[in-house]
Design a protein around this nucleic acid. Sequence first.
DNA 1: ACTTATGCAACTTTTAATGTTACTTGATCG
DNA 2: CGATCAAGTAACATTAAAAGTTGCATAAGT
Lengths: 156, 156
Amino acid sequence: MKRDSRLSGVLHVLLHMAETNVPMTSEALANMMKTNPVVIRRVLAGLREHQLVCSAKGHGGGWQICRELETITLHDIYLALDKPTLLAMGNRTEAPGCLVEEAVNNALNQAFHEAENLLLERFRSVTLAQLSADFHQRKQAHGFTGNHEHSIFSGE
Amino acid sequence: MKRDSRLSGVLHVLLHMAETNVPMTSEALANMMKTNPVVIRRVLAGLREHQLVCSAKGHGGGWQICRELETITLHDIYLALDKPTLLAMGNRTEAPGCLVEEAVNNALNQAFHEAENLLLERFRSVTLAQLSADFHQRKQAHGFTGNHEHSIFSGE
DNA sequence: ACTTATGCAACTTTTAATGTTACTTGATCG
DNA sequence: CGATCAAGTAACATTAAAAGTTGCATAAGT
């Protein structure tokens, strides 16, 4: 299976959208993400169904977050993405006719469910507002050290 | 991505091997698993490198578990499978140049690592012996109720 | 009307697992 | 020894899911 990076991607997009109060076009977002506008629309369309973002056509149109960042958790986004598969491993067969497989499935499912629940729990505990705050902190920190790093290596 | 079921599959194979003390051929195992002998060999070859199973060629040859079931944990097998990917989701880009993405990656990685560690911890805590014991319990239980179910629906 | 942007369906590409074929190597049996 | 059995292995085919692409329809603003 290819690794699913939609959650990662859509968070990136949302944080960029959060930095401005004008709608952003899927093309602009696609450029930031080095991907295709249709991919952006596809993903954001899911979020729109859950009233996390809105879209507008025509001039000055584009995408905007339409809820307070504090009220949007990663779990909300996970749901809006239609609950993508969390684990890369799974049982060979569900509902086996073989008792050996039943025993195996039982043991693995227990571990799998615990891991999935932990992930979802973490998703529930993180809001877009927190991520945005973290980003702004990083920007600050980068501003202080970034110029120094630059001046070490060149006279520009 | 297709879901990886090698761990599930190899556990199934190993428990079947544990039920006998003669070597089992990859063909016999493949029949049980409804798969191809080469797939079986491929997977078991990994386990052999970790001294979990041994193989023998020629007449009477085949595969056997060559360590006590008590001493083999799911984690040993996970390692022998060459640490297959655990999570179906990942970051869009590691080592991003974008501070937004850094913030996103940071938050997600934290959750991802916790989930992975939990899974590995569970793997470490389960031995083949435990799975085998669970299987034998199921067989017992099935023996008591199985005949009843059978007699309900037919006069055989 | 023209331009900009989303909406959407169909198709292609990519990646990783899984399955298959064909052949080689080594062990055992007669 | 030679026939047979089974693993070892490489090359190739298939499958499933994500991601990317193309083309065109629809709606909004100028």
